[in-house]
Nucleic acid binder design. Structure first.
Lengths: 209, 209
DNA sequence: CCATGTGAACAAATTCACAGCA
DNA sequence: TGCTGTGAATTTGTTCACATGG
């Protein structure tokens, strides 16, 4: 718990899943849940739920289970989503525009506070309620809004350059959608989401069809 | 190699990365490459590259390395992307429309042959060159086009229903963007891509900022 | 009594180190 | 020589099974 880098990414991934499941239970009015019930309901592993949770504290009551509401709060706190985080989107093409809208609609924990592009034709227009700024405005906007997360949705050849611009502007974490292996800034947490890789993984299982 | 399910997903993920790196090298005119050069160039592990590759055959030449061109072909074949696969997109909202365009533009290995929605206002309109059909047309289109992969970009409450429609229509693999733990059809390979989970994983590292 | 929390057993994945071959 | 391919060693992650305690 003390050193964030000691937590395997796969554990974080599961914590996030647990949080989603627990929120749904809470919305359904469920007050308490055991690891076994949770596992059965959402096809997870009970032992793994307990192991994962105890990395961050003792949240359960022996003989009873977990308080749904309380565990939601604790997990949200662990995942740093107990308050709204500001996001900037760099690259307002199809994907960037769609993600900007999507995040705006689907999350209370994240707010898109800036959209950037280098195309003069796009600068000044809006996507939903978001005004598109020129990429040169990035440092100013990041400073003024305290944006912490950058979503990178530029074409592959522009990815490294814009990644460097994000880190230089003081962004603390990047979600990269460009199909490129970036040279990373060690101070900046970076995750890659890669559509083609996902499709190719599926392709493998389709054989020679 | 014989049983696809014996290959760990993380290995497939890396194979896809190797393929991308090799294609870039090929485009740059590089003819041969050793595992060490590849590792150094793209920040990978040389031993792991070799281990991963040997699961599917002996592609290298001792003392020399790998023929870039030949290895590209072999990997493309392993990943089933040596010919074009047909994709349908279910849920033509922001994300679905953007992905349909994105895949159309960015991949020769995948072609979007159908876009579906249940909103009568969308049916009949087009996204790029793709006509949007009503979801009831799904079985017909899948049959006629031999579509193998379904991209699921509907709102969470509609996800299971539309997943079931995809599998019933004969789709063989699904890429799910809905933030839901689906009840899976064991005959259908399914991968989840989850924007909020990715953001929350990043959130974890931002602490209480 | 019953579900958590946890050490111990097990399984999987990665790295190491070197034999074997072009 | 110098790289691949690979068993063995190590690390990492998961599952088991039970002591602990509300």
């Amino acid at each position: 718990m003390s050193d964030p880098n000691a937590v395997p990414p796969v554990t974080l991934n599961r914590l996030s899943i647990y949080l989603r499941c627990l929120r749904r239970l809470r919305d359904q009015g469920v007050r308490q849940v055991s690891s076994q019930q949770l596992a059965h309901r959402y096809r997870l592993s009970a032992a793994q739920i307990r192991k994962d949770l105890t990395q961050f504290g003792e949240f359960g009551i022996r003989g009873v289970g977990y308080e749904v509401d309380q565990l939601c709060d604790r997990l949200a706190s662990v995942l740093g989503v107990d308050h709204t985080r500001s996001i900037v989107v760099v690259g307002m093409g199809n994907l960037g525009s769609a993600l900007a809208r999507h995040v705006g609609f689907n999350s209370e924990s994240f707010a898109v506070v800036g959209g950037f592009d280098n195309d003069p034709k796009k600068v000044g227009s809006t996507v939903g309620h978001l005004a598109i700024s020129h990429i040169s405005e990035l440092p100013t906007v990041v400073r003024e809004t305290n944006a912490e997360i950058g979503v990178l949705t530029v074409p592959a050849p522009a990815a490294q350059h814009n990644y460097d611009a994000l880190t230089a502007a003081g962004i603390k974490a990047v979600l990269n959608f460009a199909p490129v292996r970036l040279k990373l800034d060690p101070r900046v947490q970076t995750k890659n989401v890669d559509l083609s890789i996902n499709l190719e993984e599926l392709g493998f299982f389709l054989g020679q069809g």
